[in-house]
């Protein structure tokens, strides 16, 4: 994925071409996946890789050439990346569930990235399912979750990307977490005070 083709894709999206939107999503997803594998196999830091760092890395990888990029396009790209990150993690969780055995280095590496969330007791597939239901009810709120949780954007950054005030993102984020918390504890059959998220 090179900056030029991305810029072109963004341009085509601007022109209202829906296919370009999907193509961009595919490219971003592929790039994240490749980056995750590559990054993790040569990782020099003795810590778990932050998935969100990948999103930053992706962004920087594309724009280190100092390509002038319209604010709108940049925001679109980050939204896409957040969505792709979510999908990457879900796909991985799913393949992990279905194929207990086998799998290549690829899988192990991605396990590493999952650790980040799993350490916190977040069950990826459950979360994904809840988020899907949330977006049916309130797509904006789901997007806040993607940007905050999967892309690691701050409230301020999320506000900028979504074109809302920081305060409203802050509140939306509170609502989203409370709702998720509600959903996930109900689904897992644990009492709200359960240890799952503590």
């Amino acid at each position: 994925m090179d900056p030029i083709s991305v810029t072109q894709l963004l341009q085509r999206i601007d022109d209202g071409e829906e296919a370009a939107r999907e193509q961009l999503a595919g490219e971003v997803y592929g790039e994240l996946h490749r980056m995750a594998c590559r990054y993790l196999s040569q990782e020099r830091v003795d810590h778990t890789l932050q998935p969100t760092a990948l999103v930053s890395e992706l962004y920087l990888g594309l724009f280190r050439e100092n390509t002038p990029l319209k604010l709108k396009d940049r925001n679109h790209l980050l939204t896409t990346a957040a969505r792709a990150m979510r999908r990457l993690l879900i796909d991985h969780a799913r393949s992990k569930n279905s194929a207990k055995r086998g799998g290549g280095a690829d899988r192990v590496d991605l396990d590493h990235i999952m650790d980040f969330y799993e350490e916190r007791g977040v069950e990826m597939l459950e979360l994904d399912e809840a988020l899907t239901r949330l977006s049916a009810m309130d797509p904006n709120l789901a997007q806040v979750v993607e940007l905050r949780f999967f892309a690691g954007r701050t409230n301020a950054q999320t506000a900028e990307i979504m074109g809302l005030s920081e305060r409203s993102i802050e509140r939306a984020w509170s609502t989203a977490r409370a709702w998720l918390r509600n959903q996930l504890s109900a689904d897992s059959g644990e009492s709200p005070g359960g240890s799952q998220f503590s």
């Binding site: 969100t52 760092a53 007791g121 609502t175 989203a176 709200p192 998220f197």
Partner: peptide, 20 residues
Amino acid sequence: SLLESSRQNLSAFEPPTPAL
């Protein structure tokens, strides 16, 4: 019910602290 949930520990959903 949201209020009640919001008062519990929500750290599980905190994104990894962005270094940048």
